[in-house]
């Protein structure tokens, strides 16, 4: 049994007003490829309803939240008759989970890579030589100092550290 949390509800609505237009018609869940394959374990409609009710425990505090199964294919967003921006709302919720330090490891690893090098995939020696063989130019990526500064400013660095603990 959960208690309605108007604070979280209002926060989400303030960030994305489209949430309040959802009338739970289930076009999203019926059209979602992941919902179909997971037999509703991942259910975009249900996550939206939880956001409507502001159910903090289920949305933010629960480890292994099904929200991470969203493939971001955006089909729901295109289908929604009320133009509820589901993916954006999910992004907001996932961001909150990140703040709380509870994201799946793969996301943390990608974040760590960005933090370390500014890019998601560092260039290996093999690749550099393959590039040469293919006649491709050398890539000069972003100065890491600059990126580090930015990531400090957005507080990304702290959140990664919190998650890695």
């Amino acid at each position: 049994m959960s208690v309605i949390n108007f604070k979280l509800r209002n926060q989400v609505i303030k960030h994305n007003a489209s949430l309040s237009y959802c009338y739970q018609c289930s076009t999203c869940s019926g059209g979602c490829p992941v919902a179909l394959l997971t037999q509703g374990k991942y259910n975009p409609r249900k996550i939206i309803e939880m956001a409507i009710l502001g159910l903090q425990n289920k949305l933010i505090k629960e480890p292994n939240s099904s929200i991470w199964l969203c493939s971001t294919c955006q089909k729901c967003v295109e289908l929604c008759p009320q133009k509820v921006e589901l993916t954006e709302i999910f992004t907001l919720l996932k961001n909150k989970i990140f703040e709380d330090g509870k994201v799946p490891e793969a996301f943390l690893l990608q974040g760590q890579a960005i933090l370390d090098s500014g890019i998601a995939i560092p260039y290996s020696k093999a690749i550099i030589s393959r590039r040469e063989k293919l006649g491709l130019p050398e890539i000069k990526t972003a100065p890491i100092k600059e990126i580090k500064l930015l990531l400090k400013e957005t507080n990304f660095e702290n959140k990664i550290l919190k998650g890695s603990k």
Binding site: S26, S29, G30, G31, A35, L36, G40, N43, R45
Partner: peptide, 11 residues
């Protein structure tokens, strides 16, 4: 037709 059965959340 693919639809969600609200009673069970099943697709």
């Amino acid at each position: 037709i693919v639809y969600e059965d609200l009673d069970t959340s099943e697709i």
